[in-house]
């Protein structure tokens, strides 16, 4: 972890687009007027979705919109690491590096990213400015490890059951501007078993008692009748 600071270079101004503004209104309506500050995280997120990152003018604008002192918005923006305080690539590749993904080959994916995009860190853009990548902690798709999340204008979607080649193809497609399919690339629909049928519970020996070994429970002898 490093200290989170605002980017050195900042745009002159920020304004919500008409499309974002609609969503801003939706969030503002969710809270009573004197509790408008509750909408700070959704608004910061909308600003990030619109620009790709949260700029200083955006922080000020959101503070003014919600009647919050700037420092309060700044506190929120610097706390949540999902807010990008610096410009990031058009496609931000977030590679899961936590144990299940790591065991299933996350290191290969990282190598691909390093080769194709460059140095780790969301602020380090690729030469064409289209990509940047970072390693993140568990994204909760362990059954489809290894996986990456790609954040871009389309949203934040998971790409699962990856291999080095699979990720390369995804990067190629993104670079070419092609649509790519979300979810597992292995042909699975979700996290179902890879074989079509599983025969685990159909063996009759599971049920006829033939697998049981005789055991002796301690102190299980019935008490002898008195006499």
């Amino acid at each position: 972890m490093s200290v989170r600071r605002l980017a050195a270079e900042q745009p002159q101004s920020f304004a919500f687009s008409a499309e974002s503004e609609e969503k801003v209104q939706f969030w503002l309506k969710k809270y009573p007027e004197d509790r408008a500050a509750s909408a700070v995280i959704p608004l910061l997120w909308l600003a990030q979705k619109q620009e790709g990152w949260v700029s200083e003018p955006a922080i000020r604008l959101i503070g003014e919109r919600l009647g919050m002192p700037y420092i309060r918005v700044y506190e929120v923006a610097t706390f949540y690491t999902m807010f990008n305080l610096t410009p990031v690539g058009e496609h931000l590749i977030q590679v899961c590096g936590t144990t299940p993904c790591w065991l299933r080959g996350a290191d290969d994916l990282k190598a691909v990213c390093e080769k194709r995009i460059g140095k780790k860190g969301r602020e380090n853009l690729s030469a064409d400015g289209k990509f940047s990548w970072e390693e993140v902690e568990c994204l909760g798709a362990c059954a489809n490890a290894p996986m990456v999340q790609i954040a871009n204008k389309a949203g934040d979607y998971y790409y699962e059951d990856l291999t080095a080649e699979g990720l390369e193809k995804i990067l190629d497609d993104l670079q070419a501007g092609k649509e790519i399919k979300q979810g597992p690339i292995s042909g699975r629909h979700a996290s179902e078993p890879t074989q079509s049928t599983v025969e685990t519970l159909k063996d009759p020996s599971l049920y006829d008692g033939s697998r049981a070994k005789p055991i002796t429970l301690p102190n299980s002898e019935p008490a002898k009748a008195e006499g």
Binding site: M1, V3, P69, I71, R72, T78, F79
Partner: peptide, 13 residues
């Protein structure tokens, strides 16, 4: 409200 704690967590300032 001019003072605040930025970067809460181990890097709080």
């Amino acid at each position: 409200s001019e003072l605040g704690a930025a970067g809460r967590g181990e890097d709080m300032e």
